[in-house]
């Protein structure tokens, strides 16, 4: 199965269809799976045309892989249909949950890291990979709280998950910086412990800042340029991994295409500089 190219990609927004079809400077596009689960019409026509021109990453936000109650079989079937139809170069989802019971909560909610949740999520990843017939990537979350019940670090949890299921990881460096700031730990120490060998894609995005009495609380908004400390962490990661497929993620207050291309160019320069570095990532 072809992989994503080790260059920069952009999240696709319908208002940029003509620009996306014309550009040669991006390596791949990424879409949210759930936006392409209608029966037909413009979304599918655009995605088919774009995938003729660009490699495709399908990024799910609807699987709720951390649900204690099990996966939604109907949704897994929809994903299978979408992936069979488009044969994307990558499929990824989130280490999070969004539904417990009937209501769909439409947010990526946090998980405690325990042997119990590890077993649950490993079983779900196995189920997804078996159903889809392919390896998936799982993304590290941006979080605002942690759990008293957690007994594993996030990096140990992800390392164990990779070893047990063979899945890959989507390293969201903005999420690392957001969580590190929010929980007052060192992002570089987190990345030193992160199983970089399993990373198949990197996400870069912007965040917002709220002020708590004790200091900043960063919000993973996907509505701003990538912040300088995130660029610095990205450079440090690539120095260890060599170039990796890298997505500029901008989902709210989406700017014009030129602004997105400028962000992509900045990532490309860092990717280019990392060529020839040791490549120990998958």
């Amino acid at each position: 199965m072809p992989a994503l190219p080790r260059t920069t990609g952009l999240g696709f927004k319908p208002q940029h269809f003509t620009d996306m079809m014309a550009t040669d400077t991006i390596g791949f596009i990424e879409v949210h799976a759930e936006n392409y689960m209608g029966d037909g019409g413009a979304p599918h026509a655009m995605l088919a045309a774009l995938h003729d021109r660009h490699a495709l990453s399908i990024h799910g936000v609807g699987l709720s892989i951390g649900s204690a109650g099990g996966l939604d079989h109907d949704h897994l079937a929809r994903l299978r249909k979408l992936i069979d139809r488009y044969q994307p170069e990558s499929f990824s989802e989130h280490l999070a949950w969004s539904s417990h019971g009937a209501a769909w909560l439409n947010d990526l909610l946090p998980l405690p890291y325990t042997p119990e949740t590890l077993a649950t999520i490993c079983a779900h990843v196995d189920q997804v990979q078996d159903t889809l017939g392919r390896r998936m990537l799982l993304e590290n979350p941006a979080t605002y709280v942690t759990f008293a019940s957690s007994t594993l670090s996030e990096t140990d949890f992800l390392t164990e998950l990779v070893q047990r299921t063979g899945c890959g990881l989507l390293l969201d460096i903005n999420n690392v910086f957001v969580s590190a700031t929010n929980h007052r730990f060192d992002a570089r120490a987190y990345l030193a412990d992160f199983p970089l060998f399993a990373v198949g894609e990197i996400h870069l995005a912007g965040h917002d800042t709220e002020d708590l009495p004790s200091g900043p609380l960063l919000i993973d908004s996907h509505g701003a340029p990538v912040a300088d400390p995130v660029w610095a962490l990205y450079t440090q990661v690539l120095a260890r991994t060599g170039p990796l497929p890298t997505l500029i993620e901008w989902d709210t207050d989406v700017p014009d295409f030129a602004t997105l291309l400028a962000e992509a160019a900045r990532a490309n320069a860092i990717l280019h500089a990392a060529e020839g570095q040791q490549t120990d990532a998958a």
Binding site: D107, F147, N182, L212
Partner: peptide
Amino acid sequence: RAPVMAEVAQRFAVY
């Protein structure tokens, strides 16, 4: 949990 427990409610409010 949060680094300052008095701020748990403000953090949960983000979700």
